[in-house]
Design a protein around this nucleic acid. Structure first.
Lengths: 358, 358
DNA sequence: TCCCTTTCCGAAAGCGCTGCCAAACATTTA
DNA sequence: TAAATGTTTGGCAGCGCTTTCGGAAAGGGA
């Protein structure tokens, strides 16, 4: 591969001049320009961005690492990220690069390590790492600019943008309460996840606020299988179905138990979809026999479910990305700014799965 | 940011030794190791990958640039790429990074330029560039390893893996012929695209082979709007709907014209979905009134269509990615290998949109 | 004791580029 | 004509790392 030196030699000029030409700086005479242009063409020269970045201490790029590029929610998140990068810095455009770990924690680690070794100017990490994520705190010690989305790690000052899960769950439950429901159950998510705790918290607070007694019978803790195969008919089904099966199983138990609650707030739509299948099979109707509110605004079709129109709390994924990358770029350009924790609210999307109780 | 020099100084050793330690080479005594380890921790040192890559002339990463990361087909392609990278080089794992241009040709160009300036060891470009893609030929002149997927540029020796569109269209048409259809129409795609020509070519050859007269009345050239908004209800619809509308319009004309063909072979499923809506609205049935074969195996739900079960030619997208990245990594490790053009066949997926003619 | 391995270590060159600074040249002004 | 100003140009250091190569130290055998 030809280098800037080769070009300079060929053009009979100094590398300084060639560099100036390449970066369209002033101080290059027209005749020199011409000679450099020719030399470049003759040698098929392509500048080495790596070397350039080394001296400039800047790559003009941003890395994003997430678990699953093809996940149902990813599209909206990605759009937000791309658009944010576009809108923020119109002249010095940032190149946004995505790395997908496909649920492999080790791979995610590797990606983060790779990118944070100066390969990009900053990174955004979506979602949590394994429980013992010393990597985040190590990163926080260094000065490398990074930002977390949907990973509300505690104890370390870190830039992050997160969802207000407590508020979302509160409002979801409140929605049910305001429709006159009293026996409101909650089907929790994976208890290893912080968001599960937060959502349960919101549920409990809503009941407390409206002076509805909290019954532990009505709080359901499904057990989750490990991630279920997301491939069907060689067509990639975008979502992990383990929550679906869990919802199905628990709903079945509930139906068999005989004492159905008025309403259920699900920590995630996916479990709700599974539950709805169980209800359907039992000849029960949503919302006539039971009201349901979910969370996440998932697309039932991504989980092979029938097209339920479920009332749900929707995460502002686009905004998560948009705001996140804006903040990161600010950080890149002004490392002194103190860390921020940005909280976004969820939206209540009212569909057909709830009904007022007479 | 601390550098290797700082670490060496702190440890009271040379940078050479620190480098050796970092790369787990022999020739570092246990006591030195200990001191280096401490120095690294104390300084929060992270090695600079950029500098490392500059001297090693290797980044251990691969870049992928495509038009739309969130496109319906992308999931399968991405899976293939990721898996291929994984399977090929188990010890020196490559980091795969994705760049999405969202249909912006200038952005795609920028991404390609960025990555090919030594930022990665090789890139894969999915889909075509603008018609005047001098960029590809420039790249071909250089020694930078790259590979094209689904972009069968001519005249330049380039590594690429492509679909056999002629064969696919031939077999699609043949499928119709063998069911006894005689008046088989073809709805073409965007005539600026080479694949459109190839698919039409396959259609014509099939008719010729089976001695069915070719009638230009039966070859429909829809006009396509520019890319249609792919957002609906703030939920990102994954596909571009312009082909859908075109299919709808043309089918309507055909119905109004009165003289419906026995069958239609569509250059893309998306047009077929649109056409099927028109047929439905006209009270006509597929496959009773007309048989249909499509191409691409698109998911109707990605285009807001009802869930048609269409017989179609499916592209082996996973394989495209899997084989493509394997080939690229080979190229990276052995630049001398001459360019290859790998052709993959499509699969006929029989569903419910065709019926034998009595 | 000497010589020969073996192990550990560091100086220095260099990867391809940019930016500072001074030198060379050209042009204008007094 | 000399001085002052403006425009081009190139030498060189240095970005953070690896690697070569020779030297020092330590251990072993005679």
């Amino acid at each position: 591969m030809a280098t800037i030196k080769d070009v300079a030699e060929r053009a009979g000029l100094s590398t300084t001049l060639v560099s100036r030409y390449l970066n369209q700086r002033s101080g290059v005479s027209p005749s020199s320009k011409e000679r450099i242009r020719n030399a470049i063409k003759e040698l098929n020269y392509r500048p080495n961005g790596i070397a350039r970045s080394l001296v400039l201490q800047k790559t003009q790029s941003i890395g994003i690492v997430l678990d699953n590029l093809c996940a149902p929610f990813a599209a909206r998140l990605i759009s937000g990220l791309e658009q944010g990068a576009e809108d923020f810095d119109k002249e010095n455009k940032y190149n946004v690069m995505f790395c997908s770990s496909n649920g492999d924690a080790e791979k995610k680690r590797r990606h983060i390590n790779f990118l944070t070794q100066g390969r990009v100017d900053g990174i955004i990490i979506y979602g949590s790492l394994t429980s013992d994520d010393t990597l985040i705190s190590e990163l926080a010690q260094s000065t490398f600019p990074f930002l977390l989305i949907e990973n509300d790690v505690e104890g370390i000052p870190v830039d992050k943008v997160v969802i207000d899960n407590v508020d979302g769950a509160f409002r979801a439950t409140e929605h049910l309460i305001k429709q006159g429901h009293k026996r409101i159950a909650h089907m929790a998510g994976n208890m290893n996840l912080k968001i599960t705790l937060e959502r349960m918290n919101g549920y409990i607070r809503a009941l407390q606020d409206y002076q509805i007694p909290i019954s532990s019978d009505l709080i359901i803790h499904p057990s989750f299988d490990s991630m279920e195969l997301a491939v069907k008919d060689d067509r990639y089904l975008r979502g992990d179905r383990s929550y679906y099966s869990a919802g199905y199983r628990e709903m079945k138990k509930l139906i068999d138990g005989g004492n159905l609650p008025d309403a259920i707030f699900f920590a995630t739509d996916i479990s709700a979809f599974g539950a709805m299948q169980a209800l359907e099979e039992a000849g029960l109707s949503v919302p006539d026999d039971i009201s349901i509110v979910g969370f996440d605004d998932e697309d039932p079709r991504d989980y092979g479910a029938t097209n339920h129109k479920i009332t749900t709390m929707r995460q502002p994924l686009y905004d998560l990305g948009y705001i996140g990358i804006k903040r990161l770029i600010q950080k890149v350009n002004n490392p002194e700014r103190p860390e921020e924790r940005i909280v976004l609210k969820t939206d209540l999307i009212v569909r057909d799965s709830c009904k007022s109780k007479k």
